[in-house]
Design a protein around this nucleic acid. Structure first.
Lengths: 149, 149
DNA sequence: TAACAATATTTGTTATGACAATTGAAGAAG
DNA sequence: CTTCTTCAATTGTCATAACAAATATTGTTA
């Protein structure tokens, strides 16, 4: 299906407009699928994203600015996002002793367990979304998208 | 720049995961640029999107469900989105006489003027975002993204 | 034609997001 | 050593999003 069909555009789009719309539209499709997968686990996509960043730290505590720069959605109030994870006992926060302006955030065993449970489903979800793509096509797509950055 | 570099991922990503992350990340980049462009005009991306849909109707009133199915972000409360446009006198809403459950939404002259003002800037913005791409690359990217739908 | 189902939109509620202002701590300069 | 600046995170406020429930109108059928 073309993007024009998807958004039922009567007029043909210019190539550049077509592409930016297509990127945004495709992203929505991906997000929808992922949000649906995460829903039963009561974590939002952003919360899940932060949990993965924390796991990626391999035990080293992360501070807020580290988390922010690694997020897919750079957002302003990461504090409250982390608050939610702490409420759910998926993460923990302490004040950094060497620099009391910073905080140290770590993932809890419960958080790690949750990620382990979701991991295979998320892998399958990503494969499902892209099931029509050959590895070579994935490569091409990735390389093209990388040109945006 | 690769997506791994962008999100500072220490571990290499699986091809499918890499691609879905890349699509979402790229979409954020595009959205950021567009939001920035629209900011001085005090309309959100979604509001702008709806205005363009209304213009595309070429005078024929649109009802809410039509707007919804044509939006990039299918969303639940289009009512309140349209409310905002009406507050700003960019759109008008009347009840459909032949089926009083429906509403008829049209863009006002002020709304059309606003779009005309934004049009060239938006075209330039899209071109800027994709300035490193040849027409052929845009085509390839579009065709690949179309496979998602 | 009264009762029920379907359609189209609206409203209420709660959670997130954007953005600015504020707080508290650390570092620098006189 | 006290003032100023910078840094890191938090908080307040308002706008938007998600989701469910409610309302109003029309269509259907027994």
């Amino acid at each position: 299906m073309t993007i024009e069909e998807a958004i039922k555009s009567s007029i043909p789009l210019k190539p550049h407009t077509r592409t930016t719309l297509n990127i945004m539209y495709s992203s929505r499709l991906v997000e929808e699928k992922i949000a649906e997968l995460l829903k039963p686990y009561k974590v939002s996509m952003q919360q899940y994203n932060v949990l993965r960043i924390l796991r990626g730290q391999k035990g080293i505590p992360a501070n807020l600015s580290t988390i922010q720069e690694r997020m897919i959605n750079k957002m302003s109030n990461t504090t409250r996002l982390v608050d939610k994870l702490i409420e759910k006992k998926l993460a923990d926060r302490t004040i950094c002793e060497s620099n009391r302006r910073k905080v140290e955030i770590i993932i809890t065993p419960k958080g790690l367990e949750l990620l382990l449970e979701i991991d295979p489903l998320m892998a399958k979800c990503n494969e499902d979304i892209l099931k029509l793509f050959s590895l070579q096509e994935l490569n091409t797509l990735n390389n093209l998208l990388d040109k945006l950055k």
